[in-house]
């Protein structure tokens, strides 16, 4: 019980610190605020002529997903580098609280804050179209939202740990930002992709998270929903296992390769 309190305290204080620091950065504010608004407008125009019936769903959720993913690429992961440049990375690495927990706090804080992108794209779409996205089934929507958050947290944790080992991770993150938006079907359904690409899509947990989210705002076919949830949960579990393994391996490599500082 006591132990949990301490861990909770570490996570909360790291989240608060992270939010303060992130928000102080113009690049983050741009990702968080301008990006979803602009993307919503463009997606709206694109879907207006050719979109499916419930095209507003695609616009709002697409821009929201794109926004949250952008925030993760530029912030959750980039922050490890910022800690490296400010010389605080070694400090949090050796803190008895455990850097695994601290990195988790950072990533979680960022992800929660990034949910604002959904609110912004919802409002923007409402204002420009005069129609408001209507969520038929709040229950399904909330479950999907939670799964999506878990999914993005695990993905960012993975990248953040790799980041501790190699500074170059940031470059790779920038490279995969846009392709992942397409391959995971954040803006357009993956069904428009060639088959070989869809095969890759289905291996990636964010694809299923996005699918669930989109499904949950329309008429839900329960059996399909449950099946997709099952696949997502299995993929997430595999990723969690991978991340735990990665964490332990990294913890050793970091000290052997001296990667926590800029030199």
């Amino acid at each position: 019980m006591k132990k949990w309190m301490i861990y909770w305290q570490i996570i909360v204080s790291t989240m608060t610190l992270q939010m303060k620091q992130s928000f102080a950065r113009p690049m983050f504010r741009f990702c968080l605020i301008c990006n979803p608004i602009v993307n919503t407008i463009f997606l709206y125009e694109m879907f207006l002529t050719k979109g499916p019936d419930a095209f507003l769903n695609h616009v709002v959720l697409g821009a929201g997903l794109m926004g949250i993913w952008g925030c993760i690429c530029f912030s959750s992961v980039g922050d490890i580098n910022r800690e490296r440049w400010s010389g605080t990375l070694p400090l949090i690495y050796v803190a008895p609280g455990g850097f695994g927990l601290i990195v988790f706090g950072k990533v979680f804080g960022n992800t929660i804050m990034s949910l604002l992108t959904f609110v912004l794209s919802y409002v923007t779409a409402g204002v420009i179209s005069g129609q408001w996205l209507y969520i038929v089934n709040i229950g399904y929507f909330l479950v999907s939202m939670v799964l999506m958050i878990v999914c993005f947290v695990v993905v960012s944790l993975c990248f953040a740990y790799i980041m501790m080992l190699s500074r170059k991770t940031e470059l790779y993150m920038n490279l995969i930002e846009i392709p992942l938006v397409f391959i995971c079907g954040f803006t357009f359904p993956v069904e428009v992709l060639p088959e070989w690409a869809q095969a890759i899509s289905n291996l990636l947990a964010p694809t299923w998270a996005a699918r669930l989210l989109r499904m949950s705002v329309g008429q839900v076919d329960k059996s399909v929903y449950v099946e997709c949830t099952g696949i997502l949960v299995i993929e997430l579990l595999l990723m969690v296992l991978f991340t735990i393994g990665l964490y332990h391996w990294m913890d050793k490599r970091i000290r052997i390769r001296a990667t926590l500082e800029v030199s």
């Binding site: 204080s13 790291t14 102080a24 010389g87 070694p90 949090i92 803190a95 008895p96």
Partner: peptide
């Protein structure tokens, strides 16, 4: 090795938590 966007007090409180 300090968080420049925090005050000294907040820096210390944060590390106390860690």
């Amino acid at each position: 090795g300090v968080y420049r966007r925090l005050s000294a007090r907040d820096n210390l409180l944060y590390f106390a938590g860690l």
